[in-house]
Each structure stands twice: as C-alpha cells, then as structure tokens.
Design a protein around this nucleic acid. Structure first.
Length: 121
DNA sequence: AGAATGACGTATG
DNA sequence: GCATACGCCATTC
C-alpha cells in the first residue's frame, strides 16, 4: 500500500512540462489542505527519483527551494525556463500563467481554521 | 509507544 | 507590513 509520499509523487508526476504546482495545492489534492509541509517532506525523502520532477513544485509565493533542489538553484530555474515556465524574478515563477490548476484542485476556504470552526467548533 | 522532525501555510502580535 | 507562533499529518528515531 502506497504511503503518503507515494501519493505525493503520483500527483507531482502528473504535472505537465511548462507548468508548476505548489505544495499547498498538492496537499489539497490529497485531501489534506493543511499538510503542505509534508508534501515537501515527501519530496525530500523521495523514493522515486527522476520520476518526480520536484523542480516543478514550488512555494505558494512562486519561489523555488534553492538549497533543496536536486542539482542547485540555478539548475532548477533553468530547468523550469527550459520547459517554458515564465519567471517574474530570478527566483519567482509566474504562477499566474504557469500554475498547474487541474479540476482536482478543489477550492477550499483560505482560512482553513475558519472552516474548522464552522465544522466542529 | 512516545517524542521529534520536516521542501509550508496561515493567523496573529 | 514584517516577524514570530502554531498547526498539519505522516514518517523516523
């Protein structure tokens, strides 16, 4: 039975070239809107290399993880550029145009705590 | 089995 | 508006 990480990889592998996704979004696709951290954690301990283009997974701010990329910060940026991803800055991806927003991305209230309060509190 | 940790995100001070 | 705190859920020690 696949683990949490496996599920993360499965989603990341679905990201088409020239598109990027954020940890938070992937987390939402897994049904855990608040587990964005663990998406990154999963990639960190990736059990399946190459198949998992971690360079397409970025922060919600559009920034890439410099010190944790497979090769290096410049490599990651160049890779994304090569795939057609636009950059608004040397370290920020143009999410407006390159953000991978599949239908699976179900919209959840930005204020998850508010949602939590509505639910049980 | 319990504690610690971990590529984020959001709220609050 | 920037800095800090906390919460998330699963994995590992």
């Amino acid at each position: 039975m696949p683990t949490f990480s496996e599920r993360v990889f499965d989603i990341v592998k679905q990201i088409p070239e020239g598109k990027v996704s954020t940890y938070g979004q992937i987390a939402r696709m897994m049904g855990s809107p608040r587990s964005a951290r663990y998406v990154g954690w999963a990639l960190r301990g990736n059990k399946e290399p190459v198949s998992t283009p971690c360079h397409r997974v970025i922060f919600k701010d559009g920034r890439i993880c410099e010190g944790y990329a497979f090769g290096g910060p410049d490599v990651q940026r160049k890779l994304l550029e090569d795939e057609g991803v636009a950059f608004v800055d040397d370290m920020h991806v143009d999410m407006e145009s390159c953000l991978w927003a599949p239908e699976a991305d179900r919209l959840v209230p930005p204020s998850d705590i508010d949602w939590k309060k509505e639910m049980g509190l």
